[in-house]
């Protein structure tokens, strides 16, 4: 079916090149599996993530529990799969906030020279802190909750996204068709929306795929430090934090959520590399 679609050219040339790019395909498969499992959590798990079976504590991975059970006899498989929901949800929110505010601030800074200085100095100030340290500071100030994590990570990564977009805007706004649009009477808003933003999408999409990966990682860090979600809602970071005390006796409590994070982040990074290669071979994305 896919082959048929490809042959008939129903997909654009970019999509076809992506599907031929090995790292994009591998990344999409890895990350796609995580997303599908998370969405299908009620159907792929037999017991809920908080269902305790005290007599079956610390079961190693095997027939009884696919990924073992924890100190309260809860299924690690169920907890990792349900935890994916929260981790991915946080990642998606951070990406969405990044897209909205990164685009807004990047366009303003790149297009209006008057705003460029103040906005970019602000970005410099935020970027002067190590990412995780800043997130810890914000999360600690706001008190632990899922919303806090989302806000903290958004604040950390928005300046980076805005900066990347600003760089593209600076290039695109000097192109002839922008001048031509202005000569045809287009307003600034229309020029930004129709002429500049669509021509800046490639680096932005790549950046957002990396932001998703960083958000998942940083969420784990914040939750591990007790600044994230409440322990009743398992996210990957919380699972690792909970398993830490038993790491000598029951390695699977920390290893399984850790592996899940690794798969998701590796998938996203491979996917982002593929996007970068295909959308803009000359682009080098700033890594944080």
């Amino acid at each position: 079916m896919t082959a048929l679609v490809l042959r008939q050219g129903l997909l654009g040339p970019t999509a076809r090149r992506l599907l031929r790019h090995p790292s994009f395909v591998l990344g999409a498969v890895l990350f796609g599996t995580v997303v599908v499992l998370a969405l299908a959590a009620p159907w792929v798990t037999e017991v809920g993530p908080n269902r305790m079976a005290v007599r079956l504590r610390f079961q190693p991975p095997g027939e009884m529990f696919l990924l073992g059970s924890d100190n309260l006899g809860r299924s690690m498989w169920s907890r990792v799969v349900w935890g994916a929901r929260l981790s991915l949800l946080i990642g998606a929110w951070v990406v969405a906030l990044n897209a909205v505010f990164g685009i807004l601030l990047g366009l303003l800074a790149g297009y209006f020279p008057r705003l460029d200085g103040p906005l970019m100095r602000l970005a410099d100030a935020l970027m002067a802190f190590p990412a995780v340290l800043l997130a810890i500071g914000i999360a600690a100030a706001l008190g632990p909750s899922v919303t806090t994590v989302i806000i903290a990570l958004a604040v950390v990564y928005i300046p980076r996204t805005a900066r990347i977009l600003r760089a593209s805007v600076l290039v695109v706004r000097e192109l002839d068709f922008v001048q031509a649009a202005r000569a045809a009477g287009a307003t600034d808003g229309r020029i930004l929306r129709r002429h500049i933003l669509p021509n800046c999408m490639a680096p932005l999409i790549v950046q957002l795929s990396f932001v998703f990966a960083y958000a998942i990682l940083s969420e784990a860090v914040l939750s591990f430090l007790g600044l994230g979600a409440a322990p009743t809602e398992p996210s990957w970071g919380i699972l690792i934090a909970e398993g830490r005390s038993y790491i000598r006796e029951a390695w699977w409590l920390t290893f399984m959520p850790g592996a899940a994070i690794a798969v998701a982040v590796l998938g996203l990074n491979l996917l982002g590399d593929g996007l970068r290669d295909v959308l803009d071979p000359r682009l080098t994305v700033e890594r944080t």
């Binding site: 192109l175 002839d176 068709f177 001048q179 031509a180 021509n199």
Partner: peptide
Amino acid sequence: GMVFQEPMTSLNP
């Protein structure tokens, strides 16, 4: 109205 020198780059791709 105005017409520019570079037709190759004066249209939004």
